[in-house]
């Protein structure tokens, strides 16, 4: 009985397979030789390769009403300024507002070849590496420990997370007073080691302050993500690891860390973006308007050159360079975001 029904049951399935094969073949060939034109055609028509919903409304006007507010805001406050940034990067504006002259790539050339720009770029890279490494490392360390302890996890968690909500300028203001030359406790701390900390005057002392404050501000964010990553590691996996590896460090290195890798990659990009852009207020509060001999990031230089230096063309050219960098980072981030969702 069972042997007899086997082939019969398989037969229609075979048929179905070949049936889908027929419709599948043109799809795959289309996919392999997908030209820009084909993609444009897909954009034009409402046909989606994999529609988000099986059933959708089919009205000509209603979706526009829904999407219009967002679209208007994006067009006016995103595309317009972005296009303007690109166009004005090719011009030199008259400082007194009497028109502007087209100079081609000159603004870019000036920016890239200026030693000040190169110094700022170097510092930004250094700043990114140090802040990202420290805040990721400390965030991970705290998350691993908070995941491990049984007593008081919630209290630790609340205390460690609460700092997240503090705005960068507030962090900068507090940091400024902690590094203050008259009454700052951190200055006293450095004095114990025989170092005279002079934030705002000495280049590297200011850098220390900027790094400390930026790391302080970013640890909670990394902690939250690492902890939720750790807590999503299934209990059976943990128990199996406990049997396989006796040493806690090996368990962490061989089992937990690979599972955390997607989270870590995601955080890596987020942290680089944070250090490049969101530290602006911290720098503004610490360095204030005395950039003379102080370190700063590329974004701060865009602001200084544009608003204080009135060099709109140069500032725009720097903006565009940054746009390319950050766009590349975001594309990377989306790659990992997909991966993260997939693994999670």
């Amino acid at each position: 009985m069972t042997r007899g029904s086997g082939p019969r049951a398989r037969a229609p399935r075979c048929n179905q397979n070949s049936g889908t094969q027929v419709t599948d073949t043109p799809m795959t060939t289309l996919e392999t030789e997908r030209t820009l034109l084909a993609r444009l055609r897909a954009w034009y028509s409402a046909e989606d390769a994999n529609p988000t919903k099986r059933v959708q409304f089919d009205r000509p006007l209603t979706p526009w009403l829904f999407v219009l507010p967002q679209l208007a805001v994006v067009a006016i406050f995103f595309y317009w300024p972005s296009v303007q940034a690109v166009t004005s990067s090719f011009y030199i504006e008259d400082p007194f507002g009497f028109g502007s002259t087209f100079v081609g790539m000159e603004n870019y050339g000036d920016a890239v070849t200026s030693s000040q720009y190169r110094d700022t770029a170097l510092f930004t890279a250094f700043f990114c590496v140090v802040v990202t490494a420290l805040s990721l490392g400390l965030g991970l360390l705290l998350a691993v420990k908070a995941d491990k302890v049984i007593r008081g996890t919630e209290t630790y968690k609340t205390l460690l997370i609460s700092v997240y909500a503090i705005a960068p300028p507030v962090a900068g203001l507090m940091g400024m007073m902690f590094f203050d030359m008259h009454m700052g406790p951190i200055k006293d701390l450095f004095a114990l080691f025989g170092h005279d900390l002079r934030v705002g005057i000495d280049y590297w002392d200011t850098a220390i302050a900027l790094i400390t404050i930026s790391v302080w501000k970013q640890i909670p964010y990394n902690f939250i993500f690492f902890l939720s990553g750790l807590q999503s590691v299934p209990v059976p996996v943990r128990e199996a690891a406990l049997i396989d590896a006796r040493s806690g460090w090996r368990r962490f290195r061989d089992v937990i860390l690979p599972l955390l890798a997607p989270t870590a990659f995601f955080l890596l990009i987020i942290n680089i973006t944070y250090t490049m852009f969101d530290t602006f207020p911290i720098i503004d509060v610490i360095v204030k308007d005395k950039p003379a001999n102080n370190p700063m990031t590329l974004v701060y230089k865009v602001y200084l050159d544009g608003f204080k230096g009135n060099d709109i063309g140069g500032s725009s050219a720097q903006s565009v360079i940054l746009m390319v960098v950050v766009a590349a980072l975001t594309v990377l981030q989306f790659r990992f975001l997909e991966r993260r969702v997939h693994y999670g």
Binding site: Y44, A46, Q70, V74, P81, V302, S319, V326
Partner: peptide, 26 residues
């Protein structure tokens, strides 16, 4: 909704994620 230009609108809106306000302040 199934409507024309949906994909192009999607990309128009999601490109904004690429550039934070800081790079286009001026």
């Amino acid at each position: 909704f199934r409507f024309r230009f949906a994909t192009i609108l999607f990309w128009m809106i999601f490109t904004t994620l690429l550039l934070p306000l800081e790079v286009r302040i001026m």
